[in-house]
């Protein structure tokens, strides 16, 4: 339907011959992008590291996600072991990453590393997925995972529990800064999936009553190192 393309585009060009008035800001924009202008009007992301961490803690608590702060990678391993024991995990999926792999490999239950010989049925049978992330957004309590940094698309969504291990320096103030970091880090080669995870999976479809774990993880743990 090659001509569908040209026909739609020419319909659009024809339609736009009459100009619609531009919506105006209450005060004149200072210049730069819409997003940069809007930054001071959006929820605060925290100006200092301490402010960002405080906001993140508050936001994750409201989202019913569990934030555990640890001083170093060894402590992160111990925390993960504790969760695995408490939840009686039989099988844990993870991916190769310097923060993730040592922590998971220290677990006593069955471990499965997702690689290119990915098997979705096998992943569905795992109790938990442990991943790293691209960034954490203090402003909203969102964890940015990607298909490149977090073991593909399914690891952070299919298992019943999702554990993220991240470092304090991955906590960024706001969404705008996070996008800018992503473009800086990956340039034109963005991972095929970038996903902001804001709390455990949820639904309100039945009588608008909140239920966690609709299709994705029922529980979300964030182990923050440093």
């Amino acid at each position: 339907m090659a001509n569908a393309r040209s026909e739609i585009l020419s319909r659009i060009r024809e339609a736009l011959k009459v100009v619609a008035p531009k919506p105006h800001f209450k005060s004149e924009p200072i210049g730069g992008s819409v997003a940069q202008n809007a930054k001071p009007w959006l929820p605060d992301g925290g100006a200092t590291v301490a402010a960002r961490l405080a906001l993140l803690t508050e936001n994750l608590a409201k989202l019913k996600a569990n934030l555990i702060r640890v001083p170093d990678a060894v402590a992160a391993q111990q925390v993960l072991q504790g969760i695995a024991r408490d939840k009686n995990w039989k099988k844990v999926a993870y991916h190769s990453h310097p923060l993730v792999a040592p922590a998971v490999e220290a677990l006593t239950c069955e471990k499965w590393e997702v690689t290119s010989s990915f098997n979705k049925q096998k992943l569905e049978g795992c109790d938990a997925g442990v991943t790293s992330c691209e960034a954490i957004v203090a402003q909203l309590g969102s964890i940015l995972v990607s298909s490149a940094s977090s073991g593909g698309r399914s690891l952070s969504i299919l298992p019943h529990v999702h554990v993220v291990i991240a470092t304090v320096d991955q906590v960024t103030a706001d969404l705008e800064g996070c996008f800018s970091d992503m473009l800086g880090r990956h340039g034109q080669k963005l991972p095929s999936m970038l996903s902001f995870i804001t709390g455990p999976s949820r639904t309100g479809d039945i009588e608008r009553i909140l239920v966690l774990g609709a299709h994705g993880p029922k529980e979300l743990y964030v182990i923050l190192v440093g």
């Binding site: 936001n59 997702v114 399914s154 999936m193 996903s195 902001f196 804001t198 309100g204």
Partner: peptide, 27 residues
């Protein structure tokens, strides 16, 4: 929905890329 952010906001830029362990073959 009265949320700070919807639970999943996901950006897709193609099918599974070389080096990625899962994802669709075609997009």
């Amino acid at each position: 929905a009265g949320q700070p952010m919807t639970c999943y906001n996901t950006l897709y830029s193609g099918p599974r890329k070389p080096g990625e362990c899962d994802g669709p073959e075609e997009f």
